Simulated scan of single mutants.
Amino acid sequence: MGYVTNSAIIPALIGKGGLIVSDSLNHNSIVNGSRFSGATIKVFKHNNPAHLEHVLREQIAGGQHHTHKPWKKIIVIMEGIYSMEGEMCNLPGIMDVCKKYKAFTYLDEAHSIGAIGKTGRGVCELMGVDPADVDIMMGTFTKSFGSCGGYIAASKEIIHHLKHACPAHIYATSISPPAAQQVISAMKVILGEDGSNRGAKKLARIRENGNFFRLELKKMGFEVLGDNGSPVMPIMLYNPAKMPAFSRECLRKNVAVCTIAYPATPLLLARARICISASHSREDLIKGLEVISKVGDLVGVKYCPVEEKKTTSVKKLKKFQ
């Protein structure tokens, strides 16, 4: 799936004598793939083009460790939407720096493809970046496409190389025909090539659902990370002891939430991650908000002060039905 795609593809792209410059909040699959490659790894501050430029300039000037020879290859890796933060990549700024220093770019769109952009084409479409400028675009078929496996989109030369160099392609079993057809069918729906406007409606619905849910959580006093338009919204719990309490109390009220803690996040930055779907009805969202609000009060995780006039109540929520 997406994890194997990153962890197997990156070592096939770069090795000893190469340099990987990775966003500090990149997914564990990218971290492990980078480590497996044998390349030198440097980290730049999350979504910070200025610090990326500082790292690139310093590394290009110094060259390889000990020998100071030029790097054989430099790849900058980032995500479209960061899975634990809900933030979108500052793609235009990062691309400008990579072009300036002639570094290759690798974009993980696991959470952004099929979910953002006018026609669902992801962060490039949303931010006006030509996809042809991104050397390697990676994604998973397990989220927006409802199937299994992962993909790499790149030039013919890169794909040809990966077909002969990536062990996950050479030795692993291919996805089944029904799984492949599911991906093709989902793409046709998203792009409107199925002869209907279902895809456009779903894209509008996921944006509407996400922005509604995020706004209401903030009104309740929760600290919510991420950008408007992102379907991923982490609710900060912080205290590790409050994480299981929050999860279990929500489950007792028939709402299942995904809680994230160490080692997926730093020890004192535990959170509940909400991933909004186009399939969620307004009734689903309101029910979730009602339960999360009650449990938030019980557990004590509403960290942000709320003005009286902005306080969300059950009665106010029901007017959206």
Results as ranks from 00 to 15, higher is better:
residue 198 R to P: 03
residue 317 L to R: 06
residue 214 R to E: 10
residue 319 K to L: 15
residue 200 A to M: 10
residue 6 N to Q: 11
residue 203 L to R: 02
residue 66 H to I: 15
residue 180 A to F: 10
residue 165 A to P: 00
residue 237 L to N: 09
residue 27 H to N: 13
residue 28 N to F: 10
residue 219 K to Q: 15
residue 3 Y to V: 11
residue 69 K to F: 11
residue 135 D to V: 01
residue 203 L to E: 05
residue 142 T to G: 12
residue 307 E to L: 12
residue 141 F to C: 15
residue 320 F to L: 12
residue 73 K to R: 14
residue 204 A to S: 09
residue 217 L to P: 06
residue 57 R to P: 05
residue 3 Y to D: 14
residue 179 A to N: 15
residue 242 K to L: 08
residue 124 C to F: 00
residue 220 M to Y: 09
residue 50 A to L: 08
residue 129 V to Q: 08
residue 64 Q to T: 05
residue 300 G to K: 11
residue 11 P to C: 03
residue 82 Y to M: 04
residue 131 P to Y: 00
residue 86 G to A: 07
residue 166 C to A: 07
residue 24 S to K: 05
residue 272 A to W: 03
residue 121 R to Y: 08
residue 246 F to M: 08
residue 129 V to E: 03
residue 126 L to R: 01
residue 52 L to D: 03
residue 85 E to H: 12
residue 207 R to F: 12
residue 68 H to F: 08
residue 64 Q to E: 13
residue 74 I to Q: 05
residue 57 R to K: 15
residue 19 L to C: 01
residue 86 G to H: 00
residue 238 Y to Q: 14
residue 67 T to P: 03
residue 203 L to P: 04
residue 204 A to P: 00
residue 92 P to Q: 03
residue 7 S to Q: 14
residue 174 S to M: 14
residue 39 A to R: 03
residue 113 I to N: 09
residue 210 G to L: 07
residue 64 Q to H: 04
residue 258 C to N: 14
residue 48 N to M: 01
residue 317 L to C: 07
residue 299 V to D: 04
residue 213 F to D: 00
residue 290 E to W: 13
residue 209 N to S: 03
residue 121 R to C: 04
residue 31 V to C: 02
residue 128 G to E: 04
residue 317 L to H: 06
residue 36 F to H: 11
residue 153 A to L: 09
residue 244 P to N: 02
residue 24 S to Q: 09
residue 216 E to G: 10
residue 153 A to Y: 02
residue 100 K to N: 13
residue 239 N to C: 10
residue 229 G to Y: 00
residue 108 D to V: 14
residue 225 L to R: 07
residue 132 A to P: 03
residue 3 Y to S: 13
residue 203 L to T: 06
residue 154 A to C: 01
residue 226 G to Y: 00
residue 235 I to L: 09
residue 249 E to I: 08
residue 176 S to K: 15
residue 148 C to D: 13
residue 274 I to A: 13
residue 69 K to V: 08
residue 181 Q to C: 09
residue 212 F to C: 10
